[in-house]
Nucleic acid binder design. Sequence first.
DNA 1: GTAATATATGAACAGTTATTCATATATTGA
DNA 2: TCAATATATGAATAACTGTTCATATATTAC
Lengths: 116, 116
Amino acid sequence: MTVCNHEEEHLQAAERAKRSMPKEEDVMRVAASFKAISEPCRLKILFALRHGEMCVLHIVGAVGGTQSAVSHQLRILKANGVVKSRREGQNILYSLDDEHVLAVLELACAHLHCHI
Amino acid sequence: MTVCNHEEEHLQAAERAKRSMPKEEDVMRVAASFKAISEPCRLKILFALRHGEMCVLHIVGAVGGTQSAVSHQLRILKANGVVKSRREGQNILYSLDDEHVLAVLELACAHLHCHI
DNA sequence: GTAATATATGAACAGTTATTCATATATTGA
DNA sequence: TCAATATATGAATAACTGTTCATATATTAC
């Protein structure tokens, strides 16, 4: 296969793309973060946490599913820097890690013309 | 299991979370979009397309892998509204669907302290 | 210490997905 | 029409992932 040989403009874009490709490690981290928020159940958790921190059983109540499933999902979200948690007595309170998370959610919804 | 019964503040967040949960259909669409950009190979395609539209073989050159694999991935990106394409002679030129896509990428990188 | 509540986790199974290979379609030029 | 180039796609397999079930850990109240 021979790479196409048209417009100079496209060739320049291709060369810049090759030069400026982020490090494999960074690509993997970004991919893992998006994967963390790409399952409906985990996304519901984020929508739930928009309004503030919540304990696990409140999250279960808001998104459905079993306590075990939600706990597994929270672990994935936390491991990828999407949510954070703190203990308060018997409860662990979860919240969105920072303002970037909500901003990404809102951008995605705007892109898809969802009103959330 | 009994839902925890602490701070009024948390209870209100839980109730608002339940009331304002987006429709299942919208959650699925957002999740599918994030899933589309959650694989390293597809993410590399997006990083490549930051600099402008490119034909398939240029994309293959920038991200690696086989032509077939890249073509499959492009189909997924396009089906989920992440990239768009137009024909120009023998070539199909791909580009990011709109400015939201780049904005989401940049937010994610900022969140993870990647310099892209 | 014991019971109760809240949360986390390991293993196993089922469903999903990415890649490869072979092949098909579409465009261009002769 | 034929050959060459560019892109797409169906099927199969291998790898990954989410859920469930059972159980473990941690905190509090008694």
